[in-house]
Design a binder for these strands. Structure first.
Lengths: 225, 225
DNA sequence: CGTGCGTTTGAGTGAATTCAACGGCTGTGG
DNA sequence: CCACAGCCGTTGAATTCACTCAAACGCACG
């Protein structure tokens, strides 16, 4: 990795660039009708290459969107949380797969109905477009993380994002496993684990339990110790 | 990197997943009015954080879209070629920067005019949305490359993409420098260079000149030699 | 024919990986 | 309510792929 001075810089969750607020441009329940369905942990919602007949909206739970290589290497493109809309495709086929990370309640609406609604309702069409453009901006953010950050930076960046989404200040409750985090950040499960303990030793955070992490802002020694 | 067996698999440019055809959903000249402006090599078109008052369409040349970290590490999110539309933002501010890779002719149209046009023309609004969703799918593809592929796979993937865009079969004419390629693939310039010579030794391609590469499909020994 | 930038090559280092074993939490059945 | 099983997470040791630092090469341009 391109590294250089990264570990000499303090890694402060507060300096993580603010992400675009999700509530903006979200779709209301009225514009996203349909019965909620439950999905169990690790259940597939749709698979790459399948037909893209529905758009989805999460009522509760966490979803992972990912692609896999032939030999099984997996890249999670994004996690989707409560209120998020996913599975939006322009073509008839899925370019990635979706699975429930935790138990979920999800509403599915036919793509055809959404497109028809957008045709008639210019404001809705605009919000659908804005949502896509915002997702694209987030994807660009994540590319910077994947391509140019170190393991420590990746993990801090991820925790900062999740904290921002949860709005619980510096306390992060993880709904996903270390493997999921690794596949999101382009690391191995061992590196994620090791990096968390190193960050803890450096005082950047506290691993209260595997799925519960408290972020401690800047004051943190370089990497001596 | 997650690697394992990658170099034992042949890396065949023909097996690179077909990308979405760019001609689909493109915007016609009529729908993208404005005078063309020339940009010189490495000239900035817009910068991260600046106001997003225009959408751009390339008549000739190549553009890089990128983000940079405070210490200068750069990630190129995408290259844009002839016919491509870029600089499309939902918010008023740029989330990334754009520069001319080569001399370019580019048309700029006010964002307000585009949005007004989309309001009145449902079909245009739909194509604008479809373009954004397709760009997002391409971003997801690139995340898989950045997060889970080896240097050799990254370089082959990149060359396959460019070949696909140029439609010149197996001959690739690069308009960008090794540094640009490195920053697109999350590698260093030295690794890109070394990887190209290794791939050449393995018979996967021929570096006819620095900016001209001929792809030779599969028949290629593992990595002995 | 020099000059300079972009590219290639070399040597050594290091961050993250692989392979392996151990630890600890959770949830279920006795 | 406790004990056990299984999964998830952590830690250790050795390896490796890509990086850093450094120098040489070569093509384009003046």
């Amino acid at each position: 990795m391109a590294m250089a001075t990264a570990l000499n810089h303090p890694i402060d969750p507060a300096t993580v660039e603010p992400r675009v607020a999700r509530s903006q441009n979200a779709f209301g329940a009225l514009e996203f009708p349909g019965a909620a369905r439950r999905y169990g942990r690790n259940e597939e919602i749709f698979g790459e290459g399948g037909r893209a007949d529905y758009f989805y909206r999460i009522l509760t739970g966490t979803v992972r969107l990912y692609r896999v290589l032939a030999d099984g290497r997996r890249q999670i493109a994004a996690f989707q949380f409560e209120g998020d809309v996913f599975g939006v495709e322009a073509s008839d086929y899925r370019h990635l797969s979706a699975e429930a990370v935790s138990d979920c309640e999800i509403v599915a609406t036919p793509r055809s109905a959404m497109l028809r609604h957008a045709e008639r309702n210019g404001d809705f069409a605009h919000r659908m477009w804005a949502r896509a453009v915002t997702d694209l901006a987030e994807a660009h953010d994540h590319m910077l993380v994947l391509g140019r950050q170190t393991a420590a930076e990746k993990v801090m960046s991820f925790l900062g994002d999740v904290a921002g989404r949860q709005g619980t200040g510096t306390l992060v409750k993880l709904t996903m496993s270390r493997q999921d985090i690794a596949d999101y950040l382009g690391l191995t499960i061992e590196t994620v684990s090791r990096t968390l303990t190193q960050l803890e030793r450096r005082g950047a955070l506290e691993v209260q339990s595997a799925r519960r992490i408290e972020l401690r802002s800047n004051p943190q020694r370089p990497l001596d110790s």
